[in-house]
Deep mutational scan, measured.
Amino acid sequence: TTTLTYTDEEEARKAAEELKRRGITFTYTKRGGTWEIRIK
Score class of each variant (00 low, 15 high):
1 T>W: 15
1 T>V: 14
1 T>Q: 12
1 T>G: 13
1 T>I: 14
1 T>K: 08
1 T>S: 12
1 T>E: 14
1 T>P: 11
1 T>F: 14
2 T>D: 08
2 T>E: 09
2 T>S: 09
2 T>W: 14
2 T>I: 15
2 T>A: 10
2 T>Y: 12
2 T>Q: 11
2 T>L: 15
2 T>G: 08
3 T>N: 04
3 T>P: 04
3 T>D: 03
3 T>Y: 10
3 T>M: 10
3 T>R: 07
3 T>H: 06
3 T>I: 15
3 T>S: 05
3 T>Q: 04
3 T>K: 07
4 L>A: 03
4 L>P: 01
4 L>E: 03
4 L>T: 04
4 L>S: 03
4 L>F: 14
5 T>P: 02
5 T>M: 10
5 T>V: 15
5 T>W: 12
5 T>S: 08
5 T>G: 02
5 T>L: 13
5 T>R: 12
6 Y>P: 00
6 Y>N: 00
6 Y>G: 02
6 Y>E: 00
6 Y>M: 02
6 Y>Q: 00
6 Y>C: 02
6 Y>A: 01
6 Y>H: 01
6 Y>T: 02
6 Y>V: 01
7 T>F: 12
7 T>M: 09
7 T>L: 10
7 T>P: 04
7 T>Q: 09
7 T>V: 09
7 T>I: 09
7 T>H: 11
7 T>C: 04
7 T>R: 08
8 D>M: 06
8 D>C: 03
8 D>V: 11
8 D>I: 10
8 D>L: 08
8 D>T: 13
8 D>R: 08
9 E>V: 05
9 E>K: 06
9 E>C: 04
9 E>N: 03
9 E>Q: 07
9 E>H: 06
9 E>Y: 08
9 E>I: 05
9 E>T: 02
9 E>R: 07
9 E>L: 05
10 E>N: 13
10 E>W: 12
10 E>F: 11
10 E>A: 14
10 E>R: 13
10 E>M: 13
10 E>P: 04
11 E>G: 05
11 E>D: 10
11 E>Q: 11
11 E>P: 03
11 E>T: 11
11 E>S: 13
11 E>V: 06
11 E>R: 06
11 E>L: 08
11 E>I: 06
11 E>A: 11
11 E>W: 04
11 E>C: 03
12 A>R: 01
12 A>T: 01
12 A>Q: 01
12 A>F: 15
12 A>W: 10
12 A>V: 03
12 A>I: 02
13 R>P: 00
13 R>D: 06
13 R>C: 03
13 R>N: 10
13 R>I: 14
13 R>Y: 07
13 R>F: 08
13 R>T: 09
13 R>E: 09
13 R>S: 07
13 R>G: 04
14 K>G: 06
14 K>N: 10
14 K>S: 10
14 K>H: 09
14 K>L: 11
14 K>T: 09
14 K>F: 07
15 A>N: 03
15 A>I: 10
15 A>V: 14
15 A>D: 04
15 A>L: 06
15 A>T: 10
16 A>P: 00
16 A>R: 05
16 A>T: 05
16 A>L: 09
16 A>C: 05
16 A>Q: 04
16 A>G: 05
16 A>S: 05
16 A>Y: 06
16 A>V: 12
17 E>H: 09
17 E>A: 13
17 E>L: 11
17 E>Q: 11
17 E>N: 09
17 E>K: 10
17 E>P: 00
17 E>Y: 10
17 E>M: 11
17 E>V: 08
18 E>Q: 07
18 E>Y: 11
18 E>T: 07
18 E>C: 05
18 E>A: 09
18 E>G: 06
18 E>W: 12
18 E>L: 07
18 E>K: 05
18 E>D: 13
18 E>V: 07
18 E>M: 08
18 E>R: 07
19 L>D: 00
19 L>G: 00
19 L>Y: 04
19 L>A: 01
20 K>S: 13
20 K>E: 12
20 K>T: 14
20 K>N: 10
20 K>R: 14
20 K>F: 10
20 K>H: 11
20 K>Y: 11
20 K>V: 12
21 R>Y: 06
21 R>K: 12
21 R>V: 07
21 R>S: 10
21 R>D: 08
21 R>L: 11
21 R>C: 02
21 R>E: 09
21 R>W: 05
21 R>G: 06
21 R>M: 10
22 R>E: 07
22 R>P: 01
22 R>M: 13
22 R>Q: 14
22 R>H: 08
22 R>D: 06
22 R>G: 05
22 R>F: 06
22 R>S: 08
22 R>A: 12
22 R>W: 07
23 G>H: 05
23 G>E: 03
23 G>A: 03
23 G>Y: 03
23 G>S: 03
23 G>V: 01
23 G>K: 04
23 G>C: 02
23 G>D: 04
23 G>F: 03
24 I>F: 10
24 I>G: 02
24 I>L: 08
24 I>S: 02
24 I>D: 02
24 I>V: 11
24 I>Q: 04
24 I>M: 05
24 I>Y: 10
25 T>W: 11
25 T>H: 13
25 T>C: 06
25 T>E: 15
25 T>M: 12
26 F>E: 00
26 F>C: 01
26 F>M: 02
26 F>L: 02
26 F>N: 01
26 F>P: 01
26 F>Y: 08
26 F>T: 01
26 F>G: 01
26 F>H: 03
27 T>S: 09
27 T>K: 04
27 T>D: 09
27 T>H: 06
27 T>L: 06
27 T>V: 09
27 T>G: 03
27 T>Q: 06
27 T>R: 04
27 T>C: 05
27 T>E: 13
27 T>N: 04
28 Y>K: 05
28 Y>I: 15
28 Y>V: 15
28 Y>W: 12
28 Y>Q: 06
28 Y>M: 15
28 Y>E: 04
28 Y>L: 15
28 Y>N: 02
29 T>S: 09
29 T>F: 10
29 T>H: 11
29 T>C: 05
29 T>K: 09
29 T>W: 07
29 T>N: 08
29 T>R: 09
29 T>A: 09
29 T>D: 06
30 K>V: 11
30 K>D: 12
30 K>F: 12
30 K>R: 09
30 K>G: 05
30 K>Q: 13
31 R>H: 12
31 R>M: 12
31 R>S: 11
31 R>N: 14
31 R>C: 04
31 R>L: 13
31 R>G: 06
32 G>L: 07
32 G>Q: 09
32 G>I: 04
32 G>C: 04
32 G>F: 07
32 G>Y: 05
32 G>K: 06
32 G>S: 06
32 G>H: 08
32 G>P: 05
32 G>A: 09
33 G>H: 13
33 G>P: 11
33 G>L: 12
33 G>M: 11
33 G>E: 15
33 G>C: 03
33 G>D: 15
33 G>Y: 09
34 T>E: 09
34 T>P: 02
34 T>V: 15
34 T>R: 11
34 T>W: 12
34 T>C: 04
34 T>N: 10
34 T>S: 10
34 T>A: 10
34 T>G: 08
34 T>K: 13
34 T>D: 04
34 T>Q: 12
34 T>H: 13
34 T>I: 15
35 W>I: 14
35 W>R: 01
35 W>H: 04
35 W>N: 01
35 W>E: 01
35 W>S: 01
35 W>T: 03
35 W>Y: 10
35 W>K: 00
36 E>W: 05
36 E>I: 15
36 E>M: 07
36 E>R: 03
36 E>N: 03
36 E>Q: 07
36 E>A: 03
36 E>Y: 14
36 E>L: 10
36 E>H: 05
36 E>S: 04
36 E>G: 01
37 I>M: 02
37 I>V: 03
37 I>R: 00
37 I>A: 00
37 I>G: 00
37 I>K: 00
37 I>T: 00
37 I>H: 00
37 I>S: 00
38 R>I: 15
38 R>D: 07
38 R>P: 00
38 R>Q: 15
38 R>L: 13
38 R>C: 04
38 R>W: 09
38 R>G: 06
38 R>Y: 11
39 I>V: 08
39 I>D: 00
39 I>C: 02
39 I>F: 12
39 I>N: 01
39 I>S: 02
39 I>E: 01
39 I>A: 02
39 I>Y: 12
39 I>G: 01
40 K>L: 15
40 K>R: 11
40 K>I: 15
40 K>G: 14
40 K>M: 15
40 K>T: 15
40 K>H: 15
40 K>N: 14
